[in-house]
Design a protein around this nucleic acid. Structure first.
Lengths: 212, 212
DNA sequence: AGCGAACTGGCACTCAGTGGCAGTTGGCAT
DNA sequence: ATGCCAACTGCCACTGAGTGCCAGTTCGCT
């Protein structure tokens, strides 16, 4: 989690700083020397964190690699109650909420997010770890929706589809975003938000595409 | 791959038999003693296959665990050209093709598929590996569609959404299927096919679900 | 000031997965 | 039938991710 500095207890700030340091060291290193060539042991050395603590901070090496991207989903999951209390088409509500979270990421998020997105493009295992977090979101949304819309038949299935589409739209947007020329230096979160909105508004019609 | 016995060269049949033996030993063992408690080394001992060969046959332990389910997707990917040559709504075409592959799985597939599906429900890492194969399908479909429908703007995005929905529908169907009482002994592929069809026909409307 | 809970580091360990290489075997041309 | 070659196989040593354990530390709270 990219906790804002100056929040919470001394302890939790120390943890947040260690996490941050690890991410800040890891992502450029992955980009430069390759994901596999950078070992967890080396990272821990650099960041002066014990390996044991590393695995207390992150669910694994892949989780570390995806921190910037996953933080978006995680903050969405955290605030899900508020989001699902809104009204309107679920897909729109989720899309808006997603964009909001991206907008609220801490400054400097873009640079790391691009690196993270590139890694997930080249390393299937990392990509898979990313989908896992999304899957957790889906599960939460489905649970909440079945509770809230208990009377509507098939609401759980609908919720699943909407999440799948939201996630697919986000993925498509990120793919485009990270591939823009010189993205690492110049890509902005505003661009990403626009891409997300664009793909999600195209979604409903997209489903009817036909083969000739 | 669940290759039919008696197909191909002597060599490839031996490989297929070794693969099959590993799956047949592994899935019940996973179910009985837990995924983590069953080591690759032990499996290789039992199946009389060297560890080195194990990793030649399977992309990893998770791949082994998902063989029955992944085989469906893999055969779909293999025959994709024929499938995309059909005409009609892409979602329907994909759904039909998916159901066909399930119907054509070798006899006895159900029992292993249920075990596989249960594992993927309890072990996120396995689940993730499963999504990876689906991701490969998506990629292929997107590529093929952009080539075929080069003129239609946003066809690639549409293809992505359709795949996402097809996959989500399949997942939902499998979840229900594997949870039916005594599934391991009694679940049939016909039931699964019905479930898949049912969720996919519900999909287009599902996207419009609203929060109150 | 000092208690208790939460966190930390270090170490040894397990196990998935890989590299390298020598030995074998099936496919195939003759 | 024979023999060659490429593909496959087994074996062994190795790397590196991730975990269990436990004694020591640190912070928050009273």
């Amino acid at each position: 989690m990219t906790t804002q500095p100056g929040t919470g207890t001394l302890r939790s700030r120390r943890i947040a700083r260690s996490r941050q340091r690890l991410v800040e060291i890891a992502l450029p290193a992955f980009a430069e020397r390759g994901y596999d060539a950078v070992t967890v042991d080396w990272l821990c050395d650099q960041a002066e964190v014990s390996k044991r603590s590393f695995f207390r901070y992150f669910a694994g090496k892949e989780d570390l690699a995806l921190t910037p991207l996953n933080d978006v989903w995680r903050t969405l999951i955290d605030g899900l109650d508020e989001v699902l209390a809104r009204s309107g088409p679920l897909l729109e509500v989720l899309g808006d909420a997603l964009v909001e979270r991206v907008e609220r990421m801490p400054p400097g998020w873009e640079r790391l997010a691009v690196l993270s997105a590139r890694l997930s493009g080249t390393h299937p295992a990392i990509d898979a770890a990313g989908m896992l977090v999304c899957e957790r979101l889906t599960q939460q949304v489905v649970d909440a929706i079945t509770a809230r819309l208990a009377d509507a038949p098939g609401a759980d299935l609908s919720a699943r589809f909407v999440c799948a589409v939201a996630i697919a739209g986000h993925r498509a947007a990120v793919d485009t975003w990270r591939s823009s020329p010189d993205a690492e230096a110049t890509a902005t979160r505003a661009e990403l938000c626009t891409l997300i909105r664009a793909s999600l508004t195209a979604a409903p019609d997209a489903l009817t595409i036909r083969l000739p």
